[in-house]
Amino acid sequence: MASTFRSPVLPTWCPGCNNYLVLAGLEKAFQSQKLSPSQVAIAYDIGCAGNMADFIKCYGVHTLHGRSIPVAMGLKIANPKLTVVVVGGDGGIYGEGLNHLVSAVRMDIDITVLVSNNYLYSLTTGQTSPTSPKGAKTKSTPLGTASLPIDGVSLVKSINPKVLAKSVDCQSPPSVIAAIEEGIKHPGFALLDISQFCLAFGKQLVG
């Protein structure tokens, strides 16, 4: 089905990448909410997930790495009528920009943050991320990581129990689609931690 939110740019993700599902879920949610592209503003992080910027037609900001949340906050505070979404990866949202996530949760600002959590920095070819399991052997940690992973959902819940925070898995596409719609509808801060396997670099984590 041709979506009014589809840009002329063809997605550049690896065939079978789970971010296609996130993209489809977002389009579906906007349509079911009867939003037009001009009412939506998306702040994208830098990373494979953030590359969705080119594939959607609406108001968008492809921000700096880690800064998608503050840009989204600026958009929303400047114009509360906009539906504001953040699309980013585990590296950008839980690593480089974690402080911003905490602030957005404290404010309970009405934005929806979608974290394509593939437990890696994928765009930079597969280094450890803040969600990689302890001991993960990746390109940047061939001897295994020293640190424990972050659980985004329990982290934000501990800061502000009022926000919507959910963990969903791309192995169950309907749950991802439903959660994105729920997040967009939620009248306050929403975090969706979307667990996914990176086809190109994920094998490092299971090997």
């Binding site: 503003a41 108001y59 840009v71 400047a78 602030s103």
Partner: peptide, 22 residues
């Protein structure tokens, strides 16, 4: 609107988002 965000990274980027929004 006057904000005192969590750090200067946020200050600048909230500013940029607000500027994009007019």
């Amino acid at each position: 609107i006057v904000l005192h965000p969590e750090d200067e990274l946020a200050v600048a980027n909230i500013g940029a988002g607000a500027a994009v929004a007019g």
